[in-house]
Simulated scan of single mutants.
Amino acid sequence: MNMALWIAAGLLAVVALTGGVSKAFVPKEKLAQAPGGEWTEGVAAGLVRTLGVLELLAAAGLVLPAAVGIAPVMVPVTATCWVLLMVGAMVTHVRHGGLNAFVALNLFYLALAVFVASGRFGPAAFTA
């Protein structure tokens, strides 16, 4: 169980890192042209960058606290926040393109985050 939780958290961290870098550092106009980036057209550039920074923080929060042994409870807290972020992402994608592959992908990430949060808050919690 512990290994599966580490793998799930690592996968989510890679996803968050990738999304965070693109939202924080790629110009909004270029993001709008990418598949799934249509939602950025009606949004302020500052909000897109803020979401990118939050995703970068999530990437760190899903792995680093447990890896370094400092406040490992932040792993399931971050996974819970990721669940909320994915709900927002699904709503946004539905509004801008209906039910599509991005909604399904967000649902998969949401399920992984629920797995990490429930596992790390529950039976495979980090102990001090």
Rank of each mutant, 00 (worst) to 15 (best):
F108H: 01
L112P: 09
F102W: 09
T40N: 00
L64Y: 12
N100A: 01
F126W: 12
G20D: 05
V26E: 07
T40W: 00
T92S: 14
V114C: 14
A59T: 03
A59D: 06
Y109P: 00
V68M: 15
G98V: 07
G98S: 04
A45Y: 00
W82K: 00
A4Y: 15
L31E: 05
S22G: 01
L107P: 01
N2K: 06
G97T: 10
V63N: 11
N106F: 08
V91H: 01
A4Q: 15
A79P: 08
L31F: 08
A59G: 14
A111K: 05
A89F: 11
V87F: 13
F121S: 03
V103Q: 08
L5H: 10
G42K: 07
I7Y: 14
F126K: 07
N2I: 01
V53M: 07
M3S: 11
E41F: 09
A125N: 14
F108W: 10
P72T: 01
F25Y: 05
V73Y: 01
L56D: 15
L112Y: 04
V75D: 08
A34N: 11
L11R: 02
G46E: 11
L57V: 01
N106R: 00
L107Q: 02
L17S: 03
A24I: 07
L17F: 13
A111C: 13
V91M: 05
P35A: 15
G20A: 10
A104S: 04
A4F: 15
V68C: 13
L5C: 07
H93G: 02
W82Q: 09
F126Q: 06
A8E: 00
H96D: 09
P76R: 06
L5R: 10
L31G: 14
T78F: 10
M74Y: 15
F115E: 09
A128V: 05
L54N: 11
V83H: 14
L51F: 10
V87I: 12
I70G: 03
T78K: 00
G119V: 01
A13P: 05
A124M: 10
S118E: 08
E38I: 14
V103C: 12
G122S: 08
F126E: 10
K28R: 08
E38Y: 15
A89E: 07
K28E: 02
F115H: 12
A79T: 05
V103L: 05
S22E: 04
L85D: 02
N106W: 03
L51G: 13
L84I: 05
L5A: 11
V15N: 00
G52A: 13
V77Y: 03
T92I: 08
R95F: 02
F126R: 02
F25K: 04
E55F: 11
V14A: 02
G98E: 08
A117K: 03
V87R: 11
G10L: 13
K28W: 00
A67N: 05
V91C: 06
V63K: 13
R49F: 13
S22Y: 14
L56A: 11
A124H: 13
A71P: 02
A34K: 03
E41Y: 06
F121K: 01
L47F: 09
V73M: 10
A113N: 08
P35W: 10
V26F: 14
A58E: 01
L17A: 08
V114F: 15
R49S: 13
R49T: 13
L17H: 03
G97S: 04
G122P: 07
V91Q: 04
A79V: 05
G20S: 04
V26W: 07
V48Y: 06
V21C: 07
A79F: 02
A128G: 12
G69C: 12
A16R: 00
